[in-house]
Nucleic acid binder design. Structure first.
Length: 434
RNA sequence: GCCCCCAUCGUCUAGUGGCCUAGGACACCACCCUCUCAAGGUGGCGGCACGGGUUCGAAUCCCGUUGGGGGUGCCA
């Protein structure tokens, strides 16, 4: 096909439940190529199986694609509404003797000799000898057409130029090609079979074993931009080694012929790393707004004001990889008394310095200026007196006030908490020390 | 069993015969910075599965071996 011919791609999910990570990647690559070439992407719901036509499942696909920012051109095509086209095709093959009735079903006649082959854009030439392909069912005994028929008819009827789908569909391709030819088509679409996404065991991601629902990553607080960016890296890599970058740049760089054919492992750790990068790049206000839904779910989060959230959010932004971490990070600000981590307590309160440090801080904090620099200097001086660096000296205070040894910057946190609550917590810790 | 595919650091990738004593990212380790943790900086560890060809020259081409995966429904 001439390089300037308009491209038309399709994403054709079966509504079998939530959108699967693998499907999302397929959708993305179709979308990337359509946008890269200035072509069109049609969304085709493959619901030929009557049991799979539940509307809520289709809505879920729409929602997930919209979340990712993958849009499509024109109205979605529902295969369940195009049965007559498939029926006509089967009738025609029956009339022409290309198909025959077998035990109530209709099978397509596959020649004994010859091969069906195509030049796959990502895997090169693939050939299937006809003698290895059985006469396959095109119409079930209940009268409905099978997937092969719907696929061949729709790709032709919709004017699809590029068929981009998962590698697990390679073996159905010769059947679809034969059907397309039997429909009278002179040409073939360009096929590109994408590498599988696999788990750590190198097996195809499955609903049973793996966390494959796109939704579940969203619920954990993975940003759509980060998810799209990461998914684009599974089977494709930018030539300039810049992995984390705006979608527009990925669209500009993306080529199907650059997709590599070997399976790619889905690595949640790298996803989170990229997500963290996107989180850090957010404007502070945007971050505060983004974490609100998660924070609200905490028992203490319901009556939280956006003002309070805006004050505290910047303290944890660069420490956040997924948004669901944020309630735990912020809790000590908003509960009456922090939950004291037993290990943290044991680690810092056992030594000879803990009580004097707490006592000293308690006394000094009663009257010092309640500002970051002043608090910093005050605690540093108390540590100095005992020959301790600030790193050591701050630990008991941190555990007393936040309950843990790690967390947002201490002095900023003290300022936010206010003198009164800090003194109360120091007293509580002292009491606990006995 | 049969059919099809795949093979560069642990992982994702760059690489399309000489620029490669193989580059980047995640992870890991060390150091620096530092009020903890992060973030950031610097450095390190670590790979062309193996064997034959082709070629002046191979991670790149061909063949084989081994290993892995996908498909084998009147599911899609």
């Amino acid at each position: 096909m001439p390089s300037n011919a308009p491209t038309r791609l399709r994403f054709a999910p079966a509504p079998t439940g939530f959108l699967h990570l693998g499907s999302a990647r397929t959708a993305l690559f179709n979308w990337l190529y359509a946008r890269h070439t200035g072509g069109e992407l049609v969304l085709r719901i493959e619901d030929t199986n009557a049991e799979l036509t539940r509307p809520e499942l289709i809505d879920n696909i729409f929602r997930s694609l919209e979340w990712l920012g993958i849009d499509w051109d024109g109205e979605p095509v529902r295969q369940s509404q195009r049965g007559h086209l498939y029926d006509d095709a089967v009738e025609r093959w029956l009339d022409e003797g290309r198909a025959y009735v077998d035990d109530g079903a209709v099978r397509f006649r596959v020649p004994d000799d010859g091969v069906t082959a195509w030049d796959d854009l990502v895997r090169g030439r693939i050939e299937f000898e006809h003698r290895h392909i059985e006469d396959f069912v095109v119409r079930r005994s209940d009268g409905s057409a099978t997937f092969f028929v719907a696929n061949a008819v729709d790709d032709l009827d919709l004017g699809i130029t590029h068929v981009v789908r998962g590698e697990d569909l390679v073996n159905v391709t010769p059947k679809v090609i034969m059907l397309r030819q039997a429909l009278g088509a002179a040409d073939l679409p360009v096929f590109a079979h994408l590498p599988l996404i696999v788990n750590a065991q190198r097996k195809k991601l499955s609903k049973r074993r793996d966390d494959v629902a796109l939704e579940s990553y969203r619920e954990r607080g993975v940003l759509a931009e980060a998810m799209v960016n990461y998914l684009a890296l599974l089977g494709w890599g930018p030539p300039d080694d810049v992995e984390v970058r705006p979608l527009a740049e990925i669209v500009a760089l993306f080529e199907l012929s650059d997709v590599n054919p070997s399976a790619a492992m889905f690595d949640p750790t790298k996803l989170e790393a990229i997500n963290g990068e996107y989180i850090r790049a957010m404007a502070p206000e945007a971050f505060a707004a983004a974490i609100e839904p998660w924070v609200r779910q905490a028992s203490w989060g319901e009556e939280l004001s956006v003002t309070e959230l805006a004050v505290v959010a910047p303290l944890i932004q660069e420490r956040t990889r997924v948004l669901e971490q944020t309630p735990a990070q912020l809790e000590f600000f908003f509960v009456e008394q922090p939950v004291i981590d037993a290990d943290a307590w044991a680690n810092v309160m056992g030594g000879e310095h803990a009580i004097p440090l707490l006592t000293g801080a308690r006394a000094a904090f009663e009257s010092c200026d309640w500002r970051v620099e002043q608090l910093h200097r005050t605690l540093a001086a108390i540590g100095d007196d005992r020959g301790l660096k600030l790193g050591k000296a701050q630990a008991p205070v941190r555990v007393a006030v936040t309950g843990r040894t790690v967390g947002p910057p201490l002095f900023e946190s003290l300022v936010v908490l206010g003198r009164e609550r800090v003194l109360t917590r120091l007293d509580a810790a002292l009491a606990r020390c006995g």
